[in-house]
Amino acid sequence: MVNMDVALKEMMLLDGAIGAAVVDYGSGMPLGMVTGPKDLDIEIAAAGTTEVIRAKIHTIEQLGLNDSIEDVLITLGSQYHILRPSRGRHARGVFLYLALDRGKGNLALARHRLKAIEEDLEV
């Protein structure tokens, strides 16, 4: 099991990491967050993207799909924002939020690392 502080540090070790958070999607509040050298208000970003997670969960329920979100990718001109809801029994109701510099980050590697971190996360 990995605690939240270790998870955030691991996310920030990824090349191009700008900011990372573990967010409660019930309240939209980050339970923990770290930012890098670039200016990114991770608290505002996390709160705003919570609405994306909530809307998609609601849509899946309305469609009657027996499925869940693996991750959500928001692609900006200079950044990737990856949202990964936790499905682990030790971290329900939260999602991992990672912002990457698009020119420096490796999207495939970041998604792979977030999956591993999410699976071991304990909140």
Results as ranks from 00 to 15, higher is better:
residue 39 D to W: 08
residue 82 I to K: 10
residue 62 Q to I: 06
residue 51 E to F: 09
residue 109 L to H: 08
residue 66 N to S: 15
residue 65 L to C: 04
residue 115 K to D: 10
residue 7 A to M: 05
residue 81 H to M: 14
residue 90 H to P: 01
residue 112 H to R: 14
residue 111 R to I: 12
residue 8 L to R: 00
residue 27 S to R: 14
residue 41 D to W: 01
residue 75 T to F: 01
residue 50 T to N: 09
residue 122 E to M: 08
residue 1 M to V: 04
residue 98 L to W: 07
residue 74 I to N: 02
residue 15 D to E: 15
residue 25 Y to P: 01
residue 15 D to Q: 15
residue 3 N to W: 05
residue 36 G to R: 06
residue 43 E to A: 14
residue 66 N to G: 06
residue 97 Y to H: 14
residue 69 I to K: 07
residue 68 S to Q: 11
residue 51 E to K: 11
residue 66 N to M: 12
residue 34 V to A: 03
residue 6 V to W: 00
residue 71 D to H: 13
residue 25 Y to N: 04
residue 90 H to N: 15
residue 54 R to Y: 03
residue 122 E to Q: 12
residue 6 V to N: 01
residue 41 D to R: 13
residue 36 G to S: 09
residue 121 L to S: 04
residue 34 V to E: 10
residue 123 V to F: 14
residue 117 I to M: 11
residue 76 L to R: 15
residue 104 K to S: 13
residue 1 M to D: 05
residue 64 G to L: 05
residue 121 L to D: 03
residue 106 N to V: 03
residue 14 L to I: 12
residue 38 K to Y: 12
residue 40 L to M: 15
residue 117 I to K: 06
residue 35 T to V: 15
residue 103 G to Q: 14
residue 28 G to V: 04
residue 80 Y to A: 09
residue 76 L to E: 13
residue 115 K to G: 04
residue 80 Y to H: 15
residue 103 G to Y: 02
residue 65 L to E: 15
residue 84 R to H: 05
residue 109 L to T: 10
residue 86 S to I: 02
residue 44 I to C: 01
residue 10 E to K: 08
residue 19 G to P: 00
residue 13 L to Q: 07
residue 109 L to N: 07
residue 112 H to C: 07
residue 73 L to A: 08
residue 30 P to W: 01
residue 101 D to W: 02
residue 4 M to I: 15
residue 52 V to C: 07
residue 85 P to H: 11
residue 50 T to K: 09
residue 23 V to D: 08
residue 28 G to C: 07
residue 44 I to M: 12
residue 70 E to D: 14
residue 25 Y to R: 07
residue 13 L to D: 14
residue 25 Y to Q: 05
residue 121 L to W: 05
residue 98 L to Y: 08
residue 40 L to H: 06
residue 87 R to L: 08
residue 80 Y to M: 12
residue 17 A to Q: 04
residue 122 E to N: 13
residue 77 G to M: 08
residue 115 K to C: 01
residue 3 N to I: 04
residue 79 Q to C: 06
residue 121 L to P: 05
residue 83 L to I: 14
residue 13 L to V: 03
